[in-house]
Amino acid sequence: MKLKKVMKRIGLLFLLLILFMFVNNSNWFHKGDNSTPKLLAHVGMSQTYPMDGITGETCTAKRIFEPEHPYIGNTIPSMEAAFKHGADIVELDVHPTRDGEFAVFHDWTLDCRTDGTGVTREHTMKELKTLDVGYGYTADGGETYPLRGEGVGLMPTLQEVLTHFPNKPFLINIKSNDQEEGEKLAEYLSDLSDVNVDQLSAYGGDKPIQALQEELPGIRVMSMETLKSCLISYMGVGWTGYIPAACKDTQIHIPENVAPWLWGFPNKFQDRMEAVNTRVILVAGEGKWSEGFDDQEDLKRIPDDYDGYVWTNRVDVIAPLVKND
C-alpha cells in the first residue's frame, strides 16, 4: 500500500511538472500586439541564385537568376536601396587589406565576381578600388554579363559605408577565424569617431569574435561557439523560464528547422530574449548558405506574431508583404 501511495505521488508530481512546462512555455496566453517581423537584408540588395548544389567552392555570380534590379551586393547603392525598400538592418562582409583598411566584399578571392585575381585580403584598398565588382555576373552561362562595367570602383571600405549611413544598423561578417582580425576590427571601429558603434553587431569565426568582444564589450556578437553555448544551455533549462548567461546581451541566428525545439518559440522565446537584450534572427533552412525568406511562399513558414528579425535576400519583395499586412 505504501508503495502504491508513493507511486501515485510521484505520478502526480510528474503530471504537475508536465503541466508547468506546458503552461510556462505556451504561447496561448501571449497577448499579441500585431507586430511584424523586422528585416535583415543580406548584403543589401543583390543578385540572387538557386541554392541547390551550393558548396563552398561555388561561384554564385555565374548562376544568378535573370536580374530584376541593377544592384550589386555589398556596395553603397545596394545598401541605400535596401534601406529604402524597408530593411531594418543590413548585413555586410569585410576583409582586412594590406594597407590597414577593411574592404566590404563577400568572397575570399576576387576571381568569381570581379576582373581581379587572387586573395582579396592580399591586395591594397587602392588596388581593390580599380576593380569591377559586377564583372563576373551571368544568368545564361556566360553568353551575356549584364552587370559588367557597372561596378567599377564600387567596392567600399567599411569606413565609407558607416560614414555614409552614420545612424543605420549593420551586421558585420568577419570572414576568417583569425584572432588578430578581430583585434584589428575593434581598433578600426574605435577610431571612427563619427560612427555610432552601438548600431553595429558582428558575427564570424570563434577567435576573431571573441577578440572583438573583449575589446568592444558593448557590441553584440555571434560565433558558432556563442550560438551553441546559448542554444544548448537554453534547451536544457529554458523550460523553467531561466535564461542562461550565454544568451544575454548577444545575438543568435536560428535556423528555422531548429526554432521549434526552443522552449516558448516564437512569442515567449522572443520576449525572453528581448528581456535580456538579445537579438533574434530567423534564417531559412539550415542557415548554411545564406538562405533567406525571399518570396511569399517563404513567408508562410514564419510563425504568426513572430516579431524578431528574419534574414532575406530580397528585401524589395518581402518588405511590401510584411510591412503592409
Results as ranks from 00 to 15, higher is better:
32 G>I: 02
157 T>E: 04
266 P>R: 02
176 S>F: 03
51 M>Q: 11
215 E>P: 00
222 M>N: 15
120 T>H: 04
143 E>T: 10
49 Y>D: 03
186 A>L: 09
185 L>E: 04
286 E>K: 15
170 F>M: 04
241 G>F: 06
199 Q>W: 08
103 A>N: 05
301 R>T: 15
145 Y>P: 02
267 N>W: 08
156 P>L: 06
286 E>H: 13
55 T>M: 10
90 V>D: 05
257 N>K: 11
253 H>A: 08
8 K>F: 03
152 V>H: 01
271 D>K: 15
274 E>N: 14
186 A>Y: 11
196 N>A: 13
244 P>D: 08
197 V>D: 00
44 G>H: 01
124 T>H: 09
41 A>R: 01
158 L>M: 10
191 D>P: 00
301 R>P: 04
45 M>Q: 13
308 G>R: 00
252 I>G: 01
58 T>S: 14
251 Q>R: 05
257 N>E: 11
41 A>C: 06
310 V>L: 14
195 V>N: 04
42 H>I: 07
27 N>H: 07
113 R>E: 09
102 F>Q: 08
308 G>A: 06
281 I>M: 10
292 G>R: 09
317 V>A: 13
119 V>E: 10
127 E>Q: 13
53 G>M: 09
264 G>C: 08
242 Y>V: 12
36 T>S: 12
97 T>G: 10
218 G>F: 09
261 W>H: 10
184 K>G: 00
57 E>S: 15
244 P>I: 12
194 D>S: 14
325 D>A: 12
76 I>V: 13
115 D>Q: 12
269 F>T: 04
161 V>D: 03
164 H>G: 00
272 R>G: 10
81 A>S: 11
287 G>Y: 09
16 L>T: 10
78 S>W: 01
162 L>D: 08
49 Y>M: 03
151 G>T: 04
184 K>I: 00
67 P>F: 01
95 H>L: 02
80 E>F: 01
143 E>C: 00
55 T>L: 09
62 K>E: 15
70 P>W: 06
162 L>R: 04
252 I>A: 13
82 A>V: 06
89 I>Q: 08
230 C>D: 09
103 A>V: 12
106 H>R: 06
281 I>K: 03
144 T>W: 04
143 E>F: 04
255 P>M: 09
271 D>C: 01
211 A>S: 14
136 G>I: 05
211 A>Q: 13
23 V>H: 00
212 L>C: 03
209 I>N: 10
152 V>M: 04
10 I>T: 11
165 F>Q: 05
86 G>F: 07
68 E>S: 14
318 I>F: 07
107 D>L: 05
